[in-house]
Design a protein around this nucleic acid. Structure first.
Lengths: 336, 336
DNA sequence: CTGAAAGCGCTAACAA
DNA sequence: TTGTTAGCGCTTTCAG
């Protein structure tokens, strides 16, 4: 650990630690001359204050936690960028935790936060998360929490999401307009808020356009790629397979393309595909992919900003804040 | 911040804080019965020890820093996964910092580490980094540093890389074997270790196969997408444009595909393309992309393991450890 | 304008 | 087996 302490500075300068401490935070009760001398020595000795001593004393860590299901997904990568940008700007540090879509891991990560390790939390819940006690627990301790993208409805706090319902509707409607008669929605969870909202939008579009929801209208995928491959292959092997697919998350797209390739199905002739995705390579896929793109960076940024507001204004309590940033439809060849 | 402290526990149980502290770490000098009572109350009150108090006292933070150029790149996303997996396993926390390829940002981030905020550092340097004083400075303070992927040669410490020279050679040779007569290497920096090693491998392959290095044999790209687009477009607009391209990093691939599309150049007929990339969508690009894939997850894992070794064994000093994990060539249609 | 002193919550030597 | 004590480095009253 570091060696230069405030005590050493004080000793060298024949000042008290209190005076040095005040000089360091540019207190008005310290003379210009003293401040100058202090800063000079600080530069000379390369002094950097011990953050843990100060955290202990001030009961603030200037650190936030970002809890994510995973990071190998363009959405979360972009969101981290947005979060980190705001944090760096505000002088905060960012601890990152991955749940790998595992609820009990999420619980134990959250439990640690009761220690006061972080001043605030940004979280996108795991696909397994169906209740939010572990989150309420830390809130009770006065630690603000902001959800982004994947929220937990029952927890009352700020949420930054995108217009999932409308996007599901738009996706389905786009396929309908392009002539699809039988559209399947590939879900990733029957409990996750975003998956369900997107699905509801999809259902509404079907109803509005007098299309019945077939039994294989929704296929639930998992965290296991091999399983998903088989489920989708199974679906598409059928003689009257769907002629339209909506992938609710990015990673399912690649599986869909593989299945179609392996079954010799042409996209978009045999089946049209649209995906919720932030893949920067969507445009150069074979065929180029029609996407619903979420404003990932902006969502991260907005969530972080909300959190820092709560952190910096006293008596600022996060309640029902609900920021909804719109996704956009990018029409490409996979739905031609 | 948290409210239950060790003092409160001690008070409730009519014990001294020292005893409770020892009971919590399962010290042999505490009776079974006392330990039981302590744990009971711990569970009841949901006590979690204050990490900052303990860090201050023990001069250890159980936290490492991961410093990256960016995160919206499959390589770094996968590497974070590897790092986080090891850290979570060892009970360490992970602070993440992005330099956005900016050297002075990297410096100020490193400077903060002199405070003792972290016990160790994993870093992949920015493209602008040409010297390592800021890194040596923290090392001098006894904080171990492990480089991964993008190293700083002059700093003596452990490094985890992939076989960049050989990969550059393999990439060029692959294009030569496939009949390319004029191959251009798209670099991202003339100082970055990985970019140069890959380039040297490329040059060696040309020499070995009696091909001369043309003036436009290497094109230096930047961090600016528009600039890169123009540079590559310029290169490819020429009548005798190269018939083979090596993209030294993932993000350049997408630009290359766009340029070719805009200039109506067919890949691989008019120009063959190979890229250093971890894109999971490489297989479903149009055309599917031949890649040199780095073992990103494994590199993150290896770097983290090395660091934790240094952290946990006393008197363990990182010196010339040099782990080289091989990349693999995946031949696909873009070089057919 | 500067100094003295208490204490944030925890650990670890030493005493009992 | 348990208790006492002295800090880790810093902030912040309160006095001078």
């Amino acid at each position: 650990m570091a060696n230069t302490t405030i005590k050493k500075l004080a000793h060298e300068l024949n000042l008290s630690v209190g005076t040095v401490s005040k000089a360091l935070k540019d207190s008005h009760e310290i003379s210009i001359e003293t401040k100058r001398k202090v800063h000079e020595l600080v530069n000379k000795l390369n002094y950097v204050p011990n953050p843990y001593a100060s955290s202990l004393r001030k009961r603030k860590s200037k650190t936030i936690a970002v809890v994510l299901p995973e990071v190998a997904d363009s959405f979360f990568s972009l969101a981290i960028n947005g979060i980190e940008a705001v944090a760096q700007d505000k002088g905060y540090h960012v601890l990152i935790y991955l749940t790998h879509e595992n609820f009990s891991k999420e619980q134990s990560i959250l439990k640690d936060f009761k220690s006061g390790r972080v001043d605030g939390i940004l979280i996108s819940v795991s696909r397994e998360t169906t209740q939010g006690n572990h989150i309420c627990d830390v809130q009770t301790l006065g630690i603000p929490v902001v959800f982004f993208d994947r929220v937990c409805d029952e927890v009352e706090t700020a949420k930054v999401t995108t217009n999932d319902f409308e996007s599901g509707y738009v996706a389905a409607k786009h396929l309908i307009v392009r002539g699809c008669k039988q559209i399947t929605y590939l879900s990733i969870s029957n409990t996750l808020s975003i998956a369900n909202k997107r699905m509801e939008g999809y259902c509404k579009a079907l109803t509005d356009h007098r299309m019945e929801t077939k039994e294989n209208g929704v296929v639930f995928c998992t965290n296991n790629e091999a399983y998903n491959y088989n489920a989708i292959k199974n679906l598409m092997s059928n003689k009257d397979h769907p002629d339209g697919l909506i992938a609710s998350v990015e990673k399912l797209t690649i599986t869909v393309y593989h299945v179609c390739n392996d079954l010799n199905l042409q996209i978009p002739q045999d089946v049209k595909v649209i995906s919720f995705s932030n893949l920067s390579s969507a445009l150069i896929l074979n065929p180029s992919l029609t996407t619903i793109t979420q404003p990932a960076f902006e969502m991260g940024e907005a969530a972080a900003s909300l959190l820092f507001n709560a952190l910096e204004k006293r008596n600022f309590i996060l309640k029902g804040e609900n920021i909804i940033l719109p996704s956009v439809l990018n029409i490409r060849n996979s739905t031609k």
